[in-house]
Every structure is written in structure tokens, then in C-alpha cells.
Design a protein around this nucleic acid. Structure first.
Lengths: 346, 346
DNA sequence: TTGAAAGCGTTACCAA
DNA sequence: TTGGTAACGCTTTCAA
């Protein structure tokens, strides 16, 4: 009927100290620098902890020490596997250093991003990992001005004082276009995005570079879209279908996988053969695009490595501020050729 | 070259108090119970806060108050959109109550789940949301014994003292089978899972119930698989293909979407028509299965509602322990009929 | 190696 | 309404 009043008494370090017959400071040492304590007292302390069911109070710890061993990770979009991969990578590295990673999903909402950044700042976390909403950094400076170390993922700030890990998007676009060109395609299309979104713009210039290298043997046109979701891919697909076949591209570099999937669906539904008539390659290796009817060739973003590299930078900055040099790590994407470009291989 | 020593001095409440010419306690009140402070001093305090760039110290807050206004959410698998939906739902509700949700991904690893549960316990969070690794609750009791409120998502504990929110899986299986039967299918197959995994077992019994209701007009067979990933679906597909057509089922209820996708691929590749020859319905409405070639019919799990309901239960328990009644909320899944069962509708 | 005591920045209480 | 002050539970000197 009513709630249990099981709310047990939570033992503190001084309780442990009493029980073990040692001083408070000794318990603290036993926990934090076991080597400073004789193995005998160590045993007694641990026994007492066990008997009492003691748990450290992190709040008190953070207050006294001025910082915690927790890393706060604010990321833009949990429904995108790219970010989930980052979280995994960061976690693995943190774990090696006995640090924990707490996640906060800003869900592509700027105020939320700011709120969580502020939350981690208030919590005095050891450091903050931020995979920001493209173009939005609000809240970051405030945390930094309080001495909180911040490392950016998949974005760079103007100031060189902030470490960041980014992906070479230009190379991604280049690899994608180069792949299609190598497959003999000559009339390319770059689908999606517009120039205000830097990563997508970079992908496009990379694709352009690959085309330029052919000295005119290959052409490329750009069909911009407001966003890069599946529906925008369908729009692009419809646009292609409205042309007479001879005017259609024979290869499409999509700015993102979801867009590529939408495009793929629309074309297949109209009996355009992929890749025979039109080869398609996406971008991101987004899990949501796995297992599509015709497996999608894509440019794989090193999400895991990105998270790991960022965590390494952050931890270095936290633990050795004196020897730490602020820098930007650039990771390379890689080609993942599948059926949508190279056809079925048996 | 070297790191900036920008590490600014972080002002405290007493600094604010001095600056505003009021007492420390007044600043605290100004922040926590503005109504207890005259609008004049309120103004002065806020001005001082602004000028100093003050941020509360949550560690100190949690220490003094004994709890925070943060909810910790430990979930089993971030790469499954079901869990991400839960997180969103929980967050929305928390936000309405001015509480924040911090996420920890146990990544289907029991030790991690335990570690994070312990972490949140140590942090003295206001409460814990736990979407556990099926069958594993280690770490939960310890946190509970410290007075931490815990609410389970998509799982139930043996003790009635713990609130939980679950999905009626039996109904899900029933709806799925009923749907295929309503479409005229008479030789069903339930693909995936085995009886040790409770949710999957429930789905199967639901499907069985739907079949039983036909008084023998419809049959159903069970093909178990060790897990329910795409590869297992391919295995099931291969098994079906190895039979002569007349022995094949005409409708398959898959225990999970990923499995359904694998099955779909294998069958399509062998030119089995879906849904004409074999209708397929999955389970979970997993985002990773969206945008497949033939849109997959599925049973939609109310992930968002699940998270929201759980957060509501938890917050009620936190804020009104005296009037709170422990209970288990059961949510209903719903049918999402798409092309893989009903064919293309124009 | 161990013990004692001074904070850390809040909240919450009581007196004014 | 306000001010003063004792916790909160830990880390971290400094002596012993």
C-alpha cells in the first residue's frame, strides 16, 4: 500500500573509520592511495567497508577535491549511430584511465545543449566532450572559463585553445567520387546539402576534386537539399526520374546515407537498376542504413576512433595540463564498397 | 605551445553575498526560493551573480542537500533505437519537473551496468532509471538499500517494492499473428528466440493464442534462433528456402525486426515474393529496420511512452514518497502494417 | 604509517 | 525578510 521506509542509514567514512579502529584520513588513504597504508590496516578498513556496505559520496569527494573522475559527454543526436559510436570509443578510453563517461543528449536542440554543458560545469566534472549541434557552441565558453577542459568532436572552434577531433570530409567526398569514377561512371551527381553546412560542403569539394582530376572526362552536378534525411533523397530521386534517361547521372554521391536510402528506394521502385543504370554511394555508414535491400556503399566515418581520440586528448589535458599541447586531430574516413555501387558479387 | 593558465577563479556563493551586500543564506534563498526574498535584494543578488559569472557548485549542493535534481538512466543498448526512444521520453518528463537526465550505456555488459548503477548511487542522484540487460539486476539492490529510488524499464523485479514499466509482449505477438491470419495466412511460422528470454517467449505465446483462436484453421511452427540479429534471420530464410514451396509457411512472425530484415533479404534474393508468397511481420519498430526495400510491417514498441511513464513513476516516488504506491505499468504495443504484410497500396 | 583538523560551497535552521 | 552558523562527507595538509 504505502511506500517502504526501507531508507537505510548510509554509512560514511567516519563510520568506517570507527569500525576499523583507525582515523578518518586513513580510510581516505586506504581508498585513494592504498600504498600509503599498511596491508594490515588496509585489510581492516576493507572489512569494515564490506560490513557496513559503505559507498563513497561522490558529491563530497568532488567538493573536497574540486573535481571528479567523471567525464561529461554532450552529444547532438543519439539516434544517429555515428554519435553512439563516438560514445563507445570515448568510454573505452576513459575506462582504461578509470574514469566514467556520462552522456547527455542535446537532441539537436540548442538550449538543451547549453543546459547540459552548464550541468556538467556545475557538477565539476573532470572534463567535457562535446559533439555539438553543427555551428552551435553556446555554453561551451562559460564552462571553459570556469576551468573546465573541453574537447570538440566532429567540429572545430575558432580558437586554437580548444582541442578537437574531426573527420576529413573533403577526403570522404573525394573517395566516394573517385570510387564511382573508377567504376567507369562519367556523369556524376552530388546529392544533398548546401554550402552553409561545412562538413557537407567539404564532401562536395572533395567530390569535385576527384572529378577535376579527370580533366573533363567526368562531369558532376550538384542537387542541393535543405536537409539530408530519407525524404530528401526521395525528392532527389523524383527529380532524376523526371528526366529522360539519357540526361540522368550514372553515379550519385549522396551527402549522407539516409538520403542515399531514400534515393535508392525511389529509383528501385521505378525499376531503375542500381548500380547498373545508376550507381549510388552514401556517406556516414549510418546503422539506420544497414540492411537495406541493396546494400549501400558508403564512406565510413570513424566514429569510434573519433570518440577514443577525443577522450585521449581530454584525459591528457586533465592529467598533464603542463605538458599538454592543444591540437586538432584529423581522422580519415574510409570507403566501404557494397552492392549499390559495385553490384552483386558472388 | 603550452597550455593556457586561463584557469579562472570560480566565484562562490559567499563571494556573491559579499558583492551584493547580503548574507550567504540570502543568496541561497534567492536562488532556491525567490519568494522568500524581497524583490530588491533579489535584484542585487542576480546582478552580483551576473557580474561575477557565478555558477552553482552541484557537488556542494548535493552534499548539503543529500540529493540532487539529476536522474541517472542506465540503459542496456544505445545502438537500439528502442532504448534511445525511452531516453527521450524520460527526458521530456524530467524536463517538465526541472530535472535533468544523465545517460549511461551499459552496452549489454553486466559489469558496466553495475559500475554505472554504483556511480549514480555514489553521486546521490535523485533517482535511477534502469533498462537492464535482460535478466541482470546486479548493483540495483545496493543502490536501493542506500535509499536510492529505482524504476525498471522493460523488465520487472521479483519484489513488488520496485516500480516498473513494461510492454505487453504477449499482446504484441498476438497482434502480429492475428494480423497475418486476418490477411488469410494459414501456415504461420514464429521465427527467433528461445524460451529463456522472457519477452520473446511472451511474444510467441501471444502468437500461439491468436492461432488457437482459429480452432485449427491455422497452424504455427517455431524456429528458434540463438539471437535475433539480421544474420539469424538469414539463417531462418535459408531454412525456409531449403524446403519445397508447398512446405513453406505463408506468413512469418519474426521475434524482432532485425531478424525480419535478414529474412526479408534472403527471401527476396531467392525471388520469393513478399508478401504474396510469404508475408512477414517483425517486432520492435527498430529504426535500424526503417527504410528497407520492402517496408517492414512491425509491432511498434512504445519506447517513448515507456520512458515517460517510468520517469513519472520515479519522480512521484521521489517527490511524494508518502503518497506513492509502488506499481507496475503495462503499456500496449501497436500494429504498424506496411508492405511486407499487406503489399503495396497505391 | 597514522591521527587530527582545516577546509570545500552549499543547505537548512534558528534567531534577529 | 534577513543574517549567522552548524552540518554535509570527503580530501589534504601537518604533526606525531
Amino acid at each position: 500500500m504505502n511506500n517502504d521506509s526501507t531508507r537505510k542509514y548510509v554509512p560514511s567514512m567516519s563510520d568506517v573509520a570507527k569500525r576499523a579502529g583507525v582515523a578518518l584520513g586513513t580510510v581516505s588513504n586506504a581508498l585513494n592511495s592504498p600504498d600509503k597504508v599498511s596491508s594490515d590496516t588496509l585489510k581492516r578498513v576493507h572489512l569494515a567497508i564490506e560490513e557496513l556496505g559503505f559507498v563513497r559520496n561522490r558529491a563530497a569527494r568532488a567538493l573536497a577535491a574540486g573535481t571528479s573522475n567523471t567525464i561529461g559527454f554532450v552529444l547532438a543526436d543519439l539516434s544517429n549511430s555515428f554519435f553512439v559510436d563516438m560514445a563507445r570509443g570515448a568510454e573505452e578510453v576513459a575506462q582504461e584511465h578509470k574514469m566514467a563517461v556520462l552522456l547527455a543528449n542535446s537532441d539537436v536542440m540548442v538550449p538543451k545543449q547549453k543546459t547540459y554543458l552548464n550541468l556538467f560545469d556545475e557538477e565539476r566534472v573532470a572534463g567535457i566532450l562535446l559533439a555539438p549541434i553543427p555551428g552551435y557552441f553556446e555554453g561551451m565558453q562559460k564552462a571553459r572559463s570556469h576551468g573546465r577542459d573541453v574537447v570538440l568532436l566532429n567540429a572545430t572552434a575558432d580558437e586554437p585553445e580548444i582541442c578537437s577531433v574531426i573527420v576529413n570530409n573533403e577526403l570522404g567526398g573525394y573517395l566516394a567520387a573517385k570510387h564511382l569514377i573508377g567504376l567507369g561512371r562519367t556523369k556524376l551527381m552530388f546529392a544533398g546539402g548546401y554550402d552553409q553546412v561545412v562538413p557537407l560542403r567539404d564532401r562536395r569539394s572533395g567530390a569535385q576534386r576527384a572529378v577535376d582530376e579527370t580533366d573533363g572526362a567526368v562531369t558532376i552536378e550538384h542537387v542541393p537539399t535543405p536537409e539530408v534525411q530519407a525524404e530528401h533523397g526521395r525528392t532527389v530521386g523524383a527529380a532524376i526520374l523526371s528526366r529522360i534517361p539519357s540526361e540522368r547521372p550514372d553515379g550519385v554521391v549522396a551527402a549522407a546515407d539516409l538520403l542515399a536510402i531514400g534515393l535508392l528506394q525511389t529509383l528501385s521502385a521505378a525499376n531503375v537498376r542500381v548500380p547498373e543504370d545508376i550507381a549510388i554511394i552514401g556517406h556516414d555508414n549510418n546503422q539506420s542504413a544497414w540492411d537495406s535491400h541493396i546494400p549501400l556503399s558508403t564512406i565510413s566515418q570513424p566514429g569510434h576512433d573519433l570518440g577514443a581520440a577525443a577522450a585521449r586528448l581530454l584525459i591528457e589535458e586533465i592529467k598533464h595540463p603542463e605538458r599538454h599541447v592543444h591540437r586538432s586531430v584529423i581522422l580519415e574516413p574510409s570507403l566501404l564498397a557494397k552492392e549499390s555501387s559495385i553490384g552483386r558479387r558472388l
